[in-house]
């Protein structure tokens, strides 16, 4: 009996030690990620000739010049405008068509709704690379390549499957009392939709955020479908800045560019990380 107790307390000790090592590992991973972010931000304020010589030094001067360089390297005024137009427009238009679709698919109870949801979900599995060739050819046939409208339309197309899929999850979970009351009072389908829409707001905000972040970070479609310098998005601008590094070696300018591109994301994330994270996981668990 006493040996039993002895063994189990030994096991428990081992288990606690294991858990301690595990937690240490988790915290090292967290620290590693944070350290990398902090290093990049600090590096953006360093001088190019010393940034790699003394890796762990704090910036000794406020190198605002780096950010002026980054502004030029990224062609920031133009690329930001292009990104805001295509990402903002693409997100808004995606929501405008995906919300009614998701609503009808979950709350209008018609034959064929469920296979249609699966058909939309199928699009999530189609890699962009599998369609980019005919997409490029097709859009150039109708003069929509090298055109921000063409890019916006494409952004809608690639966002719709996920947005519809995510929002069907949200609409399905809404209570039906309000809907029934509206129908009793003789409201038509469009009126009922607008009665229900505010209830789905958290889901819509989450979906819009996820779509917008994905498009903001995207560069393949922008790279292939636009080619004039004044049509570039910020993602392509950053890629080109990175690619030009082997000629310019202006590393601190590159780091400043990264910081510029990350800033809106960090602000958004500290403010709404729970919404983004929970929105993204709702599709997987509902």
């Amino acid at each position: 009996m006493s040996t039993d107790v002895h063994v189990s307390s030994l096991q428990r000790g081992g288990r606690l030690a294991g858990r301690g090592i595990g937690r240490l590992f988790v915290w090292s991973w967290v620290l590693f990620s944070l350290a990398m972010l902090v290093w990049l931000i600090l590096a953006a304020f360093k001088r190019n000739n010393s940034v790699f010589r003394d890796l762990w030094a704090l910036p000794d001067s406020n190198e605002i010049q780096n950010f002026r360089d980054a502004w030029d390297l990224l062609n920031l005024a133009r690329t930001t405008l292009n990104s805001v137009l295509t990402v903002g427009g693409g997100t808004a238009l995606t929501m405008a068509v995906a919300a009614p679709a998701a609503y009808a698919l979950t709350r209008m109870y018609f034959r064929g709704a469920s296979p249609l949801i699966s058909f939309f979900a199928l699009g999530i599995g189609v890699p962009v690379h599998a369609i980019i060739i005919p997409l490029f050819v097709g859009l150039s046939e109708v003069n929509l390549t090298n055109n921000l409208w063409g890019l916006t339309l494409t952004y809608m197309g690639v966002s719709i499957p996920f947005a519809v899929f995510l929002m069907t999850g949200f609409f399905r979970s809404l209570p039906s009392e309000l809907e029934e009351a509206a129908v009793m009072e003789g409201a038509g389908p469009l009126r009922v939709f607008f009665v229900m829409l505010p209830l789905a707001r958290p889901g819509m905000v989450a979906s819009a955020l996820i779509v917008a972040v994905g498009l903001w970070n995207e560069f393949l479609l922008a790279l292939v479908l636009t080619y004039d310098v004044d049509k570039r998005t910020i993602g392509v601008g950053l890629l080109n800045t990175f690619g030009a590094m082997r000629y310019t070696s202006n590393w601190v300018g590159l780091f400043a560019s990264v910081v510029i591109m990350l800033t809106p994301l960090i602000i958004l994330y500290t403010w709404m990380s729970r919404r983004i994270i929970e929105g993204l996981t709702v599709g997987a668990t509902k």
Partner: peptide
Amino acid sequence: FIAPALAIYLAIIMAPTVA
């Protein structure tokens, strides 16, 4: 309600997949 989303989905994703 579904037509606009479906039309764009078909044009941008499904048609190019077949192509």
